[in-house]
Design a protein around this nucleic acid. Structure first.
Length: 280
DNA sequence: AGAATGACCTGCTGGC
DNA sequence: TGCCAGCAGGTCATTC
């Protein structure tokens, strides 16, 4: 489910409410992608300091250590004071004195992992290779992150021979761009998803950088995309899917030129593009 | 190192 | 109506 916008919207929906909460216990359901990495007792009594986001991970800082929460493909969170009884796919509850943070994840590609600190082995394994953040999210608006520069992006693309769509998805240049927003950003930039990354000129790389910032920030503002079942931790669904230019629109008319949107497979993932608006 | 592939897991859809 | 192949928002490990 979640790409950067959905994870960020989820973070914003419960971060303030859980900050300062005391952890009372955990309830573990079926196994998730990785084991928790500590005994539940180690979390009990700890205080939550706050919730950050790095790429598609939510980092829940505690007085001692942190937890990395990932929503995988089908995960969503719920933070409420009185949760209903756990259902089939509710696989992790963090019980606090301010409410229960519950991970609902049918496919169980998600995870909740404890790390003693941000530079511990497990945190480095999961976060260490990640590229730059595309967005800087402030009280007065959403901007391009200062690390996501035209220079670094173009230079990074020059090193890669894979198709640009694959490079965006890999997350080792810029993070947070998943399968929906990769297709959308490439449409906005007028670039074919199949073009080798190293063949993209400096001006077109800059156009793509701006398209990524544009599409991700608009999606955050729209509450993310709800394709099947996404909702944030306070239960709200997203609306960005209504603005999708190409994603999941195979055969439909391009909203700009009317040509039928095409679909292809790259690395076993679907890609959508307009053959007229997007050039090699 | 970078690139390509398989693996993890469940639920839903579309075609026969 | 029923069954089954194929598909779904992610990313790590393995292999070359």
């Amino acid at each position: 489910m979640p790409e950067l916008p959905e994870v960020e919207v989820t973070r914003q929906s419960f971060a303030a409410a859980i900050a300062g909460a005391r952890i009372l216990g955990v309830r573990v359901g079926k196994p998730l992608r990785w084991p928790l990495g500590c005994k539940p007792e180690q979390l009990v009594g700890q205080q939550v300091i706050g919730v950050r986001r790095r790429a598609k991970y939510l980092l829940i800082d505690m007085h001692e250590g942190l937890m990395l929460w990932h929503l995988g493909m089908s995960g969503s969170l719920l933070f409420v004071s009185h949760p209903p009884p756990a259902q089939t796919h509710d696989h992790f509850d963090l019980v606090t004195d301010r409410g229960v943070l519950r991970l609902h994840d049918p496919r169980r590609f998600g995870a909740v992992v404890y790390a003693p600190h941000e530079h511990s082995a497990v945190a480095v394994k999961l976060l260490g290779h990640l590229g730059v953040e595309p967005l800087a999210i402030a009280a007065d608006g959403i901007f391009a992150h200062e690390d996501f520069t035209s220079e670094m992006f173009h230079h990074g693309l020059q090193q890669r021979r894979s198709a640009i769509k694959q490079v965006l998805l890999s997350g080792d240049l810029v993070v947070g761009v998943g399968n929906i927003y990769a297709s959308e950003a490439l449409f906005l930039a007028g670039i074919r998803p199949t073009v080798a990354a190293c063949r993209i000129s400096r001006p077109r790389a800059e156009k793509l950088r701006q398209a990524i910032v544009n599409v991700l920030s608009r999606a955050v503002q729209k509450g993310g995309s709800t394709l099947r079942d996404f909702s944030s931790a306070d239960g709200k669904t997203g609306y960005f899917q209504l603005e999708a230019m190409v994603y999941d629109r195979a055969g439909e008319a391009c909203r700009v030129c009317g040509t039928a949107i095409r679909q292809l497979k790259q690395g076993q993932r679907s890609t959508f593009y307009c053959p007229v608006c997007q050039k090699h």
